Computed example of a mutant assay.
Amino acid sequence: MKLSHKLCGAALVAAAGVALAAPNTTKAVDTKTGTGHIGFTVNTDPTDTSGVVPTDPGVTDGTTITNIPSVVNPGSFGIIAITPLEFETHDVLTANTQRDYNASFFHANQGTTDSNYPAFDVQNFVKYQDLRTMETHAYKLSATLTQNFKDTASGVELKGANITYKEANLTQTGDAALTPNASDVTTQGTISTASPTFDFIKNQGADGKGYGQFELNFGDKTSGDKAVTLNIPASSAIGAGDYNAVITWTLSETL
């Protein structure tokens, strides 16, 4: 019995020791939050084109193109540059048998004397950018024939003339994951006085697609395929003259 009492007493002392030690294992907890910051800016000066100057489309270190007219900095959203369409000059008698004329490739840096900007041919293209701060970059890129081909001296028009853009494709030098879906780009379209506007891109913009700088190209210089064609109907008489048209490209936030 004495031994039993001693064992019981020892057990009680041990249990008491555990109970007394338990509070000492609980530590105080304290938290404090810090901050993180990063900022980005967009150059909105329309005269400063250093960040938007056109280069060989889709080439990361592509050659700068210095002779595209009217290059502008659109800020966070807009059109940067458009290559002018040149259908060349032809003998008026060719119109008896020829009614389709292909636009030449754009002659980048034509007549250059600067080795840093060598001359080369490039497919016709429209360069634009969308750098808006938003999750869904929805937009529409459209071409409109705002003035039909008209002779400068007489004002006579090439009635029924129309321009067909073919093999439309997008290039960029950013992350390919942000390129608009192929289903959002129409590869061929025609503009005329009867149907002046055509939508080439209707970007849905989900998951950031469409963010960045892009070129909408017509054809590819490597294939040699001139993918913009002017058609003048056989019913339109063609006299000697210089005929000029105006094509207005629009980048719109609404689909």
Rank of each mutant, 00 (worst) to 15 (best):
S195G: 05
Y165I: 03
F105L: 13
D45W: 07
T250N: 13
E86S: 13
V59M: 11
S183F: 06
N169G: 13
T49V: 15
N162Y: 02
M1K: 12
H137E: 04
M134H: 04
N231L: 07
H107K: 15
A28P: 00
Q110R: 12
A95E: 03
V42F: 02
L20P: 00
A119T: 14
Q147A: 12
D56G: 01
E86T: 10
A15S: 11
G75Y: 07
Q129D: 05
K150V: 12
W249M: 12
A237F: 05
V126P: 01
A103D: 05
G174K: 11
T164M: 06
G208R: 01
A234K: 12
E88S: 14
A21L: 13
T229Y: 02
A14T: 10
L178I: 05
G224Q: 07
T64K: 15
G208L: 04
K226S: 05
F125A: 11
S236V: 01
S154H: 09
Y139K: 08
F105W: 05
V42R: 02
P74M: 10
A138I: 11
Y101A: 05
L93A: 12
K226N: 10
I68Y: 09
F218P: 00
H137T: 04
F198P: 01
L170F: 11
G174F: 07
A28H: 09
T64Y: 08
V228N: 02
Y101W: 15
Y243G: 05
N24Q: 11
L170K: 07
Q147L: 10
D91V: 07
F198N: 01
T197M: 08
D151F: 08
S104K: 14
N124D: 13
A15Q: 02
P233Q: 11
N231T: 15
D45C: 08
S50I: 10
G39H: 08
E167V: 08
T190D: 08
S70V: 11
S70P: 00
F214P: 01
A21Y: 04
G62Q: 12
F200G: 00
Y101K: 06
G241D: 05
K27T: 10
D242N: 14
Q123L: 03
D220Q: 10
T229D: 03
I238A: 00
A176W: 05
V126W: 00
G34C: 00
I38G: 09
D242T: 14
R132A: 09
Q98C: 06
S192P: 04
Q123E: 15
Q172G: 13
A15G: 12
D61S: 15
A143V: 11
T60D: 14
L145T: 03
S192L: 06
E167N: 15
I191A: 02
A227E: 06
K202V: 10
I247Y: 07
K32E: 08
S154W: 06
N244R: 12
A19P: 00
A168P: 03
S223W: 02
G78C: 09
Q147V: 03
G58N: 11
V122C: 04
T89N: 15
V92M: 04
F218V: 01
F200L: 04
K2W: 03
D100I: 02
T83M: 09
F105I: 08
T164F: 08
P233G: 10
E157L: 12
T248P: 08
A119S: 14
V72W: 03
S142F: 05
T26D: 04
G174I: 15
E167P: 00
D199R: 01
N67L: 12
N181H: 11
G58W: 09
